[in-house]
Design a protein around this nucleic acid. Structure first.
Lengths: 242, 242
DNA sequence: GCCGATTTGTCCGTATGTATC
DNA sequence: CGATACATACGGACAAATCGG
């Protein structure tokens, strides 16, 4: 007997919601019906529904059913995982072409203050990379990143021009797994004014994140400064029943 | 036999991580050990760990163990569910007192353009409330909200001065369940300049959200405009294995 | 208000697959 | 290769909420 993965059921239902097979405010077939349809266990269906609910497609109602809360206008597919619009998507949305410019590429040793900011232990060797992202030659995002040097061996500025993640995943066989972020607004700094095209903007959107590799060890700390007009974030919150 | 809820295990482990019983980069006891300790099923332990992982406390590594990735400096308790710092928490963090001022309280019928923005059907009766949140008498957040009128019957401006959520949950017995958000930066509008203390700021942080009640029906649409210095958001992203 | 059918929510115990060491 | 540890799935049981008669 071949198992139908919960992920299959998840993708199937997701497509049917986007297809309008099941529409906004409608109830999905009951879990027991889905169990029959997919010839699987109760828990397997539930896992698929939980994933859909976490992405804002539906919402289970105890004793009643699972209601669709997704509308066609929400094209969440165009957003990458995590909710923040990627640079390329922002480019596409605005009909522009994207480019990356590396402004700094050097190895440093983490001191006390940098340790506090980045989360790397003092004394750790890290690669410090600064990049500017351009849309149609307008510089709109500035990244300052620190990578644990032992995890990006053999990397060159050319890799940084393209995608460091791609290098790490494809060349080194590592996987980026979990990321913790803080989003806030910051007063535009001198460097922001120097590198970004933010005339008439007093503030920039700032995303700070710590990223862990497939071994759950801190791999990267980064701060991204966005032109206010080029930052968007999507999210779905499910409230606890406590 | 009394069942030990997965939520108990979740809270227990969470506390032990915050207690430094298990510390950063350490592996938690294996799931089979936890099964013995809590006298429960494998799935129950897994559900607790999944919840912790979703909140950035730990990260399971296939074939290896579950690693703690939480550090004491992350006081995520001070943030309410959902990652956005609440008004009261922001007040506490800055040692200030919070107050709410209702600037508008009227019933309207949803027209086409409002329907597009809010997600309510055209013709729906909604309560339009505008409020300003003050910290030590400095106005820093402006809310424009639309509530489905049939879901907030009997509400008064006095309720809005305190907490509409509290009224809805305690008086009407409704529960707010799921919320979908978009975060972006917007150019400060005339109203923002009129009501908020944002001198020297060209932009405000803007959070738009649609909230669904315990019946999974759209209950509220709201836009909150934040003073740039008073907006913070926390998040943990877990990457798919696809 | 009560009862019974339906539906979601939680948990158990077991089996098997897969990655790490 | 074997032992360990996480990942997925099954089938059954019961609890809790909803709804209609």
């Amino acid at each position: 007997m071949v198992h139908i993965a919960y992920d299959q059921i998840y993708r199937d239902l997701k497509q049917q919601i986007e297809n309008a097979t099941y529409v906004y405010e409608e109830l999905l077939p009951s879990q027991s019906q889905l169990v029959k349809r997919y010839q699987c266990a109760h828990n397997t269906v539930r896992k698929a529904i939980a994933k859909l609910a976490g992405e804002g497609y539906c919402m289970p109602i105890h004793g009643k059913g699972v209601r669709v809360i997704w509308t066609p206008s929400e094209d969440r597919n165009s957003f990458a995982l995590g909710g923040i619009e990627t640079f390329e998507e922002s480019a596409k949305r605005n009909g522009l072409t994207a480019r990356t410019h590396v402004t700094l590429f050097e190895y440093v040793t983490v001191d006390a203050s940098l340790a506090d900011i980045t989360g790397f232990d003092e004394g750790t060797e890290v690669l410090h990379v600064e990049r500017v992202r351009l849309l149609d030659d307008r510089p709109l995002i500035r990244d300052r990143s620190y990578y644990r040097a032992s995890m990006v061996e053999g990397i060159t500025p050319e890799h940084a021009e393209r995608s460091i993640y791609a290098y790490v995943e494809e060349e080194l066989g590592k996987r980026i797994a979990t990321s913790k972020r803080t989003i806030c607004m910051e007063v535009a700094s001198e460097s922001d004014r120097q590198w970004l095209d933010i005339e008439g903007c007093t503030h920039v959107a700032c995303v700070k994140h710590r990223t862990y590799d497939n071994d759950a060890l801190l791999f990267e700390y980064a701060e991204s400064h966005y032109h206010p007009a080029h930052f968007r974030f999507h999210d779905t919150v499910i409230r606890d029943k406590a």
